[in-house]
Write a protein that binds this DNA or RNA. Sequence first.
DNA 1: TGTAAATATTTACATGTGTCTATGTCTTGC
DNA 2: GCAAGACATAGACACATGTAAATATTTACA
Lengths: 116, 116
Amino acid sequence: MSLELTPVEAAACCSPLARQPLSESEAEGIAPLLKALADPVRLRLMSIVASHEGGEACVCDLNDAFELSQPTISHHLKILHEAGLLDREKRGVWVYYRARAEALQNLAALIGGQAQ
Amino acid sequence: MSLELTPVEAAACCSPLARQPLSESEAEGIAPLLKALADPVRLRLMSIVASHEGGEACVCDLNDAFELSQPTISHHLKILHEAGLLDREKRGVWVYYRARAEALQNLAALIGGQAQ
DNA sequence: TGTAAATATTTACATGTGTCTATGTCTTGC
DNA sequence: GCAAGACATAGACACATGTAAATATTTACA
């Protein structure tokens, strides 16, 4: 296990934005998580996976939802996975991605949490 | 008033990520808002402004909080303002930025909202 | 073993982004 | 009116990012 925090772990550690100024290192930890979400394709990927029955979806389904090449979808899924927003599980030939609900909720709390 | 929605307005219009898949146009509306936040300097700017007394801060204060040039801070503030996350008001020689709390809360609801 | 299918990796490239320097625009007070 | 200060804009540059084509890897199954 690495000493580096994943972006998701970094986001879980801070009080809400509006409560007190983020430190430089806190901000540098959280920004990559927002960056991972800040793309229309990745937003839709997250949304498709998170709203899919069972909270998971196969890459084959995801490829079909976009008019983009398979490597491009694979690239975006990797970014979401490395940010800690998607879990990855291989079952046979297929790979299933699962949304990490608590990761999204931590991020939401950081952004929208009340000042006190 | 323009027919274009600001990113903040686009975010207010959608059910949570995990409830149903975002449409392409919804995702394209929301991504710029996340992009605006997805930078360490802008995250700290938002946080400093939002947590400042009165919910607003003068650019002069913000410049002092970073070891960056004044135009760079001005550039980041413009991005946050155009995304709809900061309101801008000029009073005399000084410019004050104010955090739009409901914008942050709408975004948080979109990201972290429960599936049902 | 070997072939096909599902997914990932590599490489390349056009475009976007963060930063600075230089300059412009307002506002205030002399 | 003019000089000084606060902030914004313009231009330039290094670097990051989204995409696709080509290729590799892994798994199942005949």
